[in-house]
Amino acid sequence: MLADDNTTLVRQLAIAVFEANGRLVETGNALVRPIGLSTAWWQVLAALGYAPMPLPVAHIARNMGLSRQAVQRVVDLLAKQGLVRLEPNPHHQRAKLVVLTESGREALAAAEQAVAPLDRDLLAKIGAERLSVAIAVLREMNDALP
């Protein structure tokens, strides 16, 4: 591949996303560990907290780009901790809906409070307009991927 080939930009973006993901997970773990969460737990709590309605595990996994099995393991752990509960799904007999409990809402709020200073710092360093562009580009990339 030629050095000036624009397709290398795609590879550079992918590598930057992988690096950012690793740093987000590591930083997230450090921020939420004191409140008894991991980044994986926080991701699932946030997916539920921002969803307009309870979701089955498969939908959470699809929305997050993770395997259903990985999300099921996290949901099982969250349920043992009383942060989520499973309820019947009127649209699918076997795919229970995952619902945040009050403790789950409190844990999500605590995680978001823990990350708020970092959010403000990143916003100040990068700027709202550039963050909006980055979000749009990543969404387009996600939509273009198989």
Rank of each mutant, 00 (worst) to 15 (best):
E140V: 08
D119I: 12
L123C: 00
R11E: 13
Q69D: 10
R73F: 05
D143T: 03
W42S: 10
L108Y: 11
V133K: 04
R85E: 14
L145K: 05
P90Y: 05
T101H: 09
L48R: 06
I35E: 04
L31S: 08
L45H: 06
P88K: 02
P90M: 08
A128W: 01
L100Q: 02
N89F: 07
V133R: 09
A61L: 07
V17T: 13
L100A: 03
T27A: 14
I15L: 15
R33D: 15
V74N: 02
Q72N: 11
A30C: 01
H92V: 00
L13M: 12
L31A: 15
E129K: 07
A109W: 01
G104W: 09
Y50K: 03
L86A: 01
A128R: 15
Q12P: 00
K96P: 01
L108F: 09
R94P: 02
T39F: 15
V44A: 02
R85T: 14
G65K: 04
V115L: 14
E140I: 04
V17L: 14
R23E: 15
A107K: 15
Q81T: 03
Q72W: 07
P146Q: 09
A51V: 08
E140P: 00
A114C: 06
R68L: 01
T27D: 10
R62N: 08
R85A: 05
E26V: 10
L48V: 06
H59V: 13
S132G: 15
V75G: 00
L78M: 05
L100Y: 03
A47S: 15
R120K: 14
A144E: 14
A47N: 04
Q43N: 12
K80S: 13
M64P: 02
V25M: 08
E112D: 11
Q43V: 07
T7C: 04
V71F: 01
M141C: 06
V98H: 03
D76W: 00
V25Y: 09
P90C: 06
T8R: 13
H91I: 00
K125Q: 15
L66I: 00
P52Y: 02
L66S: 05
Q69E: 14
Q43A: 14
N89I: 07
P56L: 03
R23K: 13
N89Q: 08
G36K: 06
M1W: 04
A124L: 04
T39N: 05
A16I: 05
V84A: 12
Q113R: 15
P146E: 10
E19H: 14
F18D: 12
S103P: 00
V75A: 11
M1V: 11
P56W: 05
D119P: 00
V99A: 08
L108N: 05
V74R: 15
L9H: 12
A61D: 02
T8G: 05
A111V: 06
A134N: 04
T39D: 06
G104Q: 09
V44E: 02
D119L: 09
A16N: 10
G65E: 10
D121V: 03
A136L: 13
V133H: 04
G49E: 10
L131Y: 03
L66N: 01
E102W: 02
A128C: 01
I60S: 00
A95H: 12
V137K: 02
N63L: 11
L145T: 08
R33I: 03
